[in-house]
């Protein structure tokens, strides 16, 4: 897209206390506006990497450069405040961002409309389905108005039909807002469906084990043949990485 580097990760290493290395010599440079999927089996440290990018944790070695504005984060569980309505949840993010009170309501409703939830603005989280909750969480993350959006397996707990729709929703939001998205998943198809770039991490320690760039990202669906073909290729590589742990 614009060709500017949004996130630069150099020779990054991370270990917790005296434990084993979780991440080892990770080098990654993500352009502004890029949609990158981080893919890996359990224990590859993909969530750790995301936390490091989010600034929730510090690297042991190496460096991470992120935009000064920071990053918005979305988790697997929507983690909405159960006592607030959908609109108030988005407004909370606006309030903590420093948006004046008078402007919050309108902006929150606008953000909810981008995720097709304008009608559910006054509903509370328990009245919403899992997919709707994740969309509110997405609207809340967008409310933070940060150039980078980090997503930690946000759709893992959803059923296939809902997830399929949310893929389309996210793609739409990405194209409309031009956010840099780093999307962590263990679902190969999901990565092949969503990413402009798929980065495969090996496990224990996590290293970059492969990378795929997708030239044509419009019009992809989870059942598209090119997504299937890419998934097969990535899965082959992923299995090779997993097998190495057997020895």
């Amino acid at each position: 897209m614009s060709g500017q580097t949004a996130i630069r990760i150099e020779q990054l290493g991370k270990r917790f206390g005296a434990g084993p290395l979780v991440l080892d010599d990770v080098n990654l440079s993500i352009e502004a506006g890029e949609f990158v999927c981080l893919l890996g089996a359990s224990g590859c440290g993909k969530s750790t990497l995301l936390n490091l990018i989010a600034g929730l944790d510090r690297p042991t070695t190496g460096s991470i450069d992120v935009p000064a504005e920071g990053a918005a984060v979305m988790f697997q569980e929507s983690a909405l405040m159960p006592w607030l309505t959908a609109r108030q949840n988005v407004e909370l993010a606006l309030r903590l961002r420093g948006v004046p009170r008078a402007a919050r309501r309108g902006e929150a409703l606008e953000l909810l409309d981008t995720v097709n939830l304008a009608d559910a603005a006054e509903k509370r989280p328990h009245e919403l389905s899992g997919g709707m909750r994740q969309r509110v969480a997405l609207a809340r993350a967008l409310a933070q108005d940060r150039p980078v959006l980090l997503m930690d397996e946000p759709f893992a707990a959803l059923d296939a039909i809902t997830r399929d729709l949310l893929h389309e929703e996210l793609e739409r939001v990405w194209r409309r807002t031009g956010r840099t998205i780093v999307f962590v998943t263990h679902n190969v198809r999901e990565a092949a469906r969503l990413g402009q770039r798929v980065v495969l991490l090996s496990s224990r320690p996590g290293r970059v084990a492969g990378e795929w760039r997708i030239a044509e990202t419009t019009g992809r669906r989870i059942e598209s043949p090119e997504v299937a073909a890419l998934s097969i290729e990535i899965t082959e590589q992923l299995r090779k990485e997993i097998r190495r742990n057997a020895a």
Binding site: N116, E127, S129, G131, M132, T162, L165, E169, R172
Partner: peptide, 14 residues
Amino acid sequence: DFRSLEAGLDRLQT
């Protein structure tokens, strides 16, 4: 189309 699709699923799930 997408809006109505999503709205339909939302209605089914709540």
